[in-house]
Amino acid sequence: MSNICYIIEGAKHLVSEIEQLDMKRRKIMIGSLIGFTAWQLPLLFQYFNFNPIVSGWSSMISAIGCFVWLYYNVRLVQFSRLLRKKRELAGPLNDEYIQAIRIKSFTAAFWVLLACIVTLFVLSLFVDLKAQFTLHILIIVGVTAALVSYLIFDKE
């Protein structure tokens, strides 16, 4: 009887740990998204800004964003290592629902990116767009669209 109680208590602990790790993963993704956006958007802004004071501020915000993004990437690597050590947690945290959301979010990001490419192409017919600026926008849109769509689909 005491063995059964021990097993049930162990299962309860495992379930709580899965729930906590799922929330942790979501927080890491949100942090990474905020960091990436804070890092890249000011850099994009600098294509149009020639004021040195504003440029200085935007560079500072961008640098902070870069550190935030790096911090959350390190946490993501630590998270992956933890899952490799605790294999019993990896399965549930990568179940069919998560896999379905992942595919859905990549699909959504693809269409968003395609819409962005079409928009930029049409814009280029009227305005002279620099190649570097265009590619920069596409990188930002590609990364953020995938993350944002995943977070939206993952919400209960």
């Binding site: 299962a11 309860k12 495992l14 379930v15 709580s16 899965i18 729930e19 799922d22 399965g91 549930p92 945290l93 179940d95 069919e96 629902y97 998560i98 379905a100 993952d154 209960e156």
Partner: peptide, 28 residues
């Protein structure tokens, strides 16, 4: 949570199946 642990998925997955937002595979 307990049901999720028995079948090897997260609580969120069970919740979305219950609410009809996600159709599980045959296996699940």
């Amino acid at each position: 949570e307990q049901l999720a642990e028995w079948v090897g998925v997260t609580r969120k997955t069970i919740n979305t199946i219950e609410n009809g937002k996600f159709i599980p595979s045959t296996k699940l």
